[in-house]
Design a protein around this nucleic acid. Structure first.
Lengths: 202, 202
DNA sequence: GATTTTAAAATACAACTTGTTTCTTAATTT
DNA sequence: AAATTAAGAAACAAGTTGTATTTTAAAATC
């Protein structure tokens, strides 16, 4: 009857186009209304699609943002973290480079979602807890690579436990999640100079 | 009509008794169903009270657990953190003691609620963000006290920025939230010996 | 180009939570 | 004993969830 009904688009998005608009809607809701207000209903409304589309693909909003995170960080880095690591000439610059890479990853997602990730990980007792462990192992391996570079260059490194090797990652992660902002280059350098180098180098 | 109706207690809890049963119900729900399922409705049901009682006192479940946390950690420590800190004879033992105190605080609450706290802090942009800052300042002050003890004993300490002084707290917090378990004494000692002492002592 | 297949969109449903309000009445205070 | 305070019960609209059903664009196949 009414001419100006909500202009329901008679077109249907599909495949990649549909997926991107869902991703965009999701991130926009988190940005404007917060992760706590992220519901399938709102995503569907904003993305101009049906809820059923969402329920068909993801069990919870968390599964949705996990997928978005993987997609985004891959894009932001332009490759896997492992491939990006290079010998930059000194342990100091290697660590600064590592921190820069991590800042890029974190910023591609944002502090709010980082916090949501950790929170959700602490919630579910099933599959997700292993994520933390896996990341830990990967980080230890990354640090051993960096220390390998250092030794090959002749820098005197200390023998360290795995627990000590994860501290660069623990520190930058906690700082980012605690401060909820990008760390300045000077702040990263401060951590490297005051904390990490005294720990790693003899 | 029915004899065995839900046995609605004709008694009414009040004051401290009521409060404690609300606290207990809250913690039990978090323990058995997870923080994500913590709703005022369930708390009221389990505590055998009305929802209105909860809405009258707290705006959100988060405000409720904030109150419980403060109550619990106060109980667990038996005093304020500041009062508990003592010169134990060496920077090493001071740090181990500090870690033990923090473990006590964290365990009195549990990793799930710790994660929920940080998550909620990242959500609200209003009053809560200052909590992180306040805690940071307090921690810096605590570390300066410990380093003061050390200097008075004749230990050679390095001059350090505030950012470096927060790392003991950053580390133990991230470890607890990441691993979601109590840290063994040996693990704390490892952090102290491999990381903190090389950073703090010349 | 017509037909078939796939899956997006619309709609409906019961169940639950929220935030608020109103009312009764038990517990406490005066 | 009377007055005050606040716990507990109930109702309400609005929003979300998870599931299921139907319609019909869009893509694939012939």
């Amino acid at each position: 009857m009414n001419e100006n009904q909500p202009a329901s688009p008679r077109t249907r998005k599909r495949g990649q186009v549909l997926l991107e608009s869902i991703y965009d809607a999701t991130l926009q809701i988190i940005r404007t209304q917060g992760y706590g207000n992220l519901t399938f209903m709102r995503v569907a409304r904003l993305a101009n699609t049906g809820r059923s589309v969402l329920y068909r693909r993801w069990a919870t909003p968390f599964d949705l943002i996990r997928e978005i995170m993987a997609y985004r960080t891959e894009q932001a880095l332009g490759g896997s973290l492992d491939d990006m690591l290079r010998d930059t000439g000194s342990l100091r610059s290697d660590l600064l480079y590592l921190f820069a890479l991590y800042q890029k990853i974190y910023l591609s997602v944002g502090p709010e979602i980082m916090n949501a990730m950790l929170f959700e990980m602490s919630q579910s007792n099933a599959r997700i807890p292993t994520i933390a462990t896996d990341i830990g192992f990967r980080n230890v391996a990354l640090m051993r690579r960096l220390l390998g570079f250092a030794q090959a260059r002749g820098e005197q490194t200390r023998p360290l436990s795995n627990a000590a090797l994860t501290i660069p990652f623990d520190l930058i992660r906690m700082r980012f999640m605690w401060e909820r902002r990008e760390l300045l280059e000077a702040e990263c350098a401060q951590i490297v100079d005051e904390v990490l180098l005294p720990v790693f180098l003899a």
